[in-house]
Design a protein around this nucleic acid. Structure first.
Lengths: 156, 156
DNA sequence: CATGAAAGCCATGGTAA
DNA sequence: TTACCATGGCTTTCATG
């Protein structure tokens, strides 16, 4: 499964623009990608329908709402039984402070990114919530000193 | 510097809603947070002006545009001279395949998340681009088997 | 068959009270 | 906060290459 059914150059430009500004009108979008509003509208619909073009979201400045602490946390599971895995991934999905989670190759099973207001807040999450989970054997936390880059803009 | 000047409950609800759907009209938004459209409009403007409410972006399905490979990469710098740091962070900002970058405490200086189309694509990035950078001493790459969770929705 | 132009309806943003 | 109005975008239709 390589390339998708018919993503041409104009589609790519649409994706590029919409990744940067989801509030663009179809008229402006058409102008920027060199097409007409109606055509743009149809293409956007098709891209949405194909699941390529996802939701429009508003990004917040984490620091400004007192969530300045990013912690990267490696997790090792107690068991790799299917039930354990599912239970843990459900848990991850439900916890709002867990922003991202990757199932990893290598020494650790998962890598989590957690946002917290301060170190004490994270300590509470780690001790009472994460390590309290029955599927979790051990965890190793690494604090980010700063978020040098954070992008939602995929290279199309 | 704890809480921000006057973020009340309605503001929080606005932030919550807009994080999930940036395309909400002020009328719908007002209904959901229990306020009037005009008031919502002013609040949104204020939150934008304060830098709390950031850009509206459209999220793409990385897998659907052949960027299914996520790599987490630890980087150690050759030197911590200011010039080295700045040069590296500029480089990070410019490279589109580097999605996120955290300056870390602990053994490594940075943690990068890179998207790639496949392993060969990543290998090229690692060998020719990242390790080719004069500020980089060494790097350790870890492949994500899957992206279990990816959220842009901060808990307000 | 997809595109581009045109047009009407409707909802929205912004203002005034 | 509510009510209003004008603006502009969305969506469909139609003709064209």
């Amino acid at each position: 499964m390589k390339s998708n059914p018919a993503i041409d150059d104009i589609d790519k430009r649409i994706l590029k623009e919409l990744q940067v500004d989801a509030l663009l009108s179809h008229a402006e979008l058409a102008e920027r990608v060199g097409s007409s509003p109606a055509s743009c509208w149809r293409r956007v619909k098709a891209l949405e329908h194909a699941g390529i073009l996802g939701p429009a979201v508003r990004l917040l400045d984490a620091g400004k709402i007192d969530l300045g602490v990013n912690v990267l946390c490696n997790v090792r599971m107690r068991s790799h039984a299917r039930a354990s895995i599912e239970e843990f991934e459900d848990f991850v999905a439900r916890r709002a402070e867990i922003m991202d989670c990757y199932s990893m190759s290598g020494d650790w099973d998962y890598l989590l990114r957690i946002v917290a207001v301060d170190v004490a807040d994270y300590e509470h999450f780690l001790m009472r919530i994460l390590l309290g989970h029955p599927s979790v054997a051990t965890a190793s936390s690494h604090f980010a000193l700063s978020q040098t880059k954070y992008s939602t803009r995929l290279p199309v």
